[in-house]
């Protein structure tokens, strides 16, 4: 096993374990992450596999294929996070708005004086 393989596998294992600990209840997510982790480790140990797949679909190198897929996943994650932020922003706005309206105040009218002034 080469140095980079050890480094990558350690990383994948740590992320998977961390996910396990935090997301025990989200079964679907845990299964998905486990599968992804297993796939990652397999490809790290057998880099030739990515090359073979890459050649089949017209990409020169396995590493390039992995990179392209990473870009796609990254975009998807950014969009998801952005949608989440917008949702949060909407909730915050509603909370602040309700609180602001509940605390609205009216400057005291000194009706006699203002009428005269007009």
């Amino acid at each position: 096993m080469t140095g980079i393989q050890i480094l990558l596998i350690t990383g994948v294992l740590m992320i998977t374990l961390y996910f396990f600990q935090r997301m025990k209840k989200a079964v679907f997510s845990v299964v998905l992450v486990t599968l992804m982790g297993a796939l990652a480790i397999l490809l790290i140990l057998q880099p030739e596999l990515t090359n073979q797949i890459a050649h089949k679909i017209g990409v020169g190198r396995g590493a390039d294929l992995v990179f392209y897929i990473c870009v796609l996943i990254f975009w998807y994650v950014v969009m998801r996070l952005y949608a989440r932020i917008r949702k949060l922003e909407e909730h915050i706005t509603e909370l602040i708005r309700n609180q602001a309206i509940a605390n609205a105040k009216v400057e005291p009218t000194d009706s006699f004086e203002t009428n005269q002034a007009r």
């Binding site: 915050i92 706005t93 602040i96 708005r97 609180q99 602001a100 309206i101 605390n103 609205a104 105040k105 009216v106 400057e107 005291p108 009218t109 000194d110 009706s111 203002t114």
Partner: peptide, 14 residues
């Protein structure tokens, strides 16, 4: 200080 003016305040800038 305008009499009768309604003032509403957002707690943070939105």
């Amino acid at each position: 200080h305008q009499p009768g003016c309604h003032i509403i305040r957002h707690a943070i800038n939105l």
